[in-house]
Amino acid sequence: MAKSDNMLTKRIVPCLDIKNGRTVKGVNFVDLRDAGDPVILAKQYADLGADELVFLDIAATLENRKTMHDMVLKVAEQVNIPFTVGGGISTVEDVDDLLHCGADKVSINSSAVKRPELINELSDKFGSQCVVVAIDAKQVNGEWLVHLAGGTIPTTIKLFEWAIEVEQRGAGEILFTSMNHDGTKAGFANEALAKLSELVNIPIIASGGAGNIQHFVDTFNIGKADAALAASVFHFGEIPILELKEALFNNGIPVRI
C-alpha cells in the first residue's frame, strides 16, 4: 500500500549496550573523560543530533536491575530526547518500574515470544506508544525465522507472521534485527524490511548491518524503514551523525538537522 507523503522525518538511533550500568564494547567517537558512562554518552549523542537512543541491558540479571533503574533515572534527568530501554523485561511490573524511572519506551523480545499476551497487557496498561517489540530473525533456506536470546536460539516462528501478530496485539513499533546482517557492515536487510513495512502499519526500526552512509540511504529508500539503529559505526566515529544526516537530506530523505 502506498503511504502518503508527509514531513515526518526518518530517525537515526544509536544503540548502547549496557552491563552493570556501564557501556560495553567501548565507545570512541569524541574526546570523553568517561566513555563508559552511558549518561555522558547519551547527552553527547543528543547534542550531536541523534533522534532517539536505545539502551540494551545485556546482562539483564536480577541483581543488575537496580543499577539499570539508576541509569535510566539519570538519563531521563539529563537527556532531552526520547529513549527506549530493553533487555530482560518480562513483566508488567518491570515496565512500570522503567517508565517510572523516566524511560519513554521499553523493548521486549524473548518474553513476548514466550508469552505473546504480554504485548496486550503492556499496550492496554501503558499505551502502544511505549511498547517496542524487538524481533531478531535469521534467514534459513530462504525462510526468515525468529531467534531468541540475542539470536542464539532458533524457533520455528516465521518473521512476517510474528510481525503481524505483534501489531495486532498492540505493539507500537517493531525493532527488526537481521542476524544475517548484524555485525557484517554490509548493509541492512532491506528486502525483509520493505516486506515488513508493507505488511504492518506501525513504524519499523532497521537494525543490523550498518557499515557506511549509503547503507542508511538504502534502508530508508529501499527498505522503507522509519528509523535506523546502529552501534559501532556511531560509537567509533566511523559515521558522524551530522554528516550522515546531511547525506540523507541530500538524497531527498526527510531528516531533522
Binding site: S4, D51, E52, Q129, N201, I202, P203
Partner: peptide, 12 residues
C-alpha cells in the same frame, strides 16, 4: 491507515 499509526518521531 494511509499512514503508519502511531505517528512516531520528529515532525515540523
Amino acid at each position: 491507515n494511509k499512514v503508519k499509526v502511531p505517528q512516531m518521531g520528529w515532525n515540523t
